[in-house]
Computed example of a mutant assay.
Amino acid sequence: MTAPTTQTAPAVSSKVLRVPAADPATAAGHFHRRFTFEADVSDVHADIESGAGGFVLVDSRSAEAWEQGHIPGALHLPTDEIADRAAALVAPGSVVVTYCWGPGCNGATRAAYEFAAAGYQVKEMLGGFEYWAREGFPVEDTAGTRQSAPDPLTAPIRAGATCGC
């Protein structure tokens, strides 16, 4: 008489862990470095609202995009003009936060590079104008300032609620 055979499920390979996670110290360094290069729209909005400031917010899009809507108080300086005009518009030593359309666009990254190459400290606003508007923050255009309800996929919709991050 032969012993019954048992079947085991085949090992499933993890797509997430096919490259192992970094050790905690390396991960902490990586994520800290990201904070030195990036800010999100909620933090930019909170600083503008509180008056904390300390940075110049720059919209790096075209004139047509700017007219379609922009963040109130932002400086309009298209990427291709940064090298020639930044020194006249942005005080030396200023920290600059750049934005463009949204996460599908690397225009803010190109603008951040131009400012860094010109000697400025700079951060890129993650999410860009798209997420600013989607989170329900004020938008200014040729007709004035408007504000839409937050998109529930990007921000809490209850008045006064925050994402808590």
Score class of each variant (00 low, 15 high):
residue 145 T to Q: 15
residue 105 C to G: 05
residue 127 G to A: 02
residue 134 R to N: 14
residue 136 G to V: 11
residue 129 F to K: 11
residue 116 A to P: 01
residue 157 I to G: 07
residue 122 V to S: 00
residue 126 L to F: 00
residue 146 R to E: 10
residue 149 A to D: 13
residue 126 L to V: 01
residue 120 Y to L: 05
residue 135 E to D: 08
residue 151 D to A: 13
residue 160 G to H: 06
residue 152 P to F: 01
residue 138 P to V: 08
residue 112 A to R: 03
residue 154 T to F: 07
residue 143 A to L: 15
residue 102 G to T: 07
residue 157 I to V: 14
residue 109 T to I: 10
residue 139 V to I: 11
residue 160 G to I: 07
residue 154 T to S: 08
residue 112 A to H: 04
residue 107 G to M: 07
residue 138 P to F: 02
residue 149 A to L: 14
residue 159 A to P: 05
residue 112 A to W: 00
residue 137 F to M: 15
residue 127 G to E: 05
residue 102 G to H: 05
residue 128 G to T: 04
residue 157 I to L: 08
residue 103 P to I: 04
residue 157 I to W: 04
residue 134 R to G: 06
residue 109 T to Y: 00
residue 153 L to S: 09
residue 110 R to N: 13
residue 159 A to H: 13
residue 119 G to E: 07
residue 136 G to A: 12
residue 141 D to V: 04
residue 127 G to V: 05
residue 112 A to C: 00
residue 147 Q to L: 08
residue 136 G to S: 14
residue 105 C to V: 02
residue 145 T to I: 15
residue 138 P to C: 05
residue 119 G to F: 07
residue 140 E to I: 13
residue 125 M to N: 03
residue 138 P to I: 11
residue 137 F to A: 10
residue 114 E to F: 01
residue 125 M to I: 01
residue 140 E to K: 12
residue 111 A to G: 05
residue 135 E to F: 03
residue 102 G to P: 01
residue 113 Y to L: 14
residue 121 Q to V: 02
residue 142 T to F: 02
residue 117 A to Y: 02
residue 107 G to E: 00
residue 116 A to E: 09
residue 152 P to S: 11
residue 125 M to P: 00
residue 109 T to L: 08
residue 118 A to H: 04
residue 127 G to P: 02
residue 123 K to P: 00
residue 127 G to L: 09
residue 150 P to A: 12
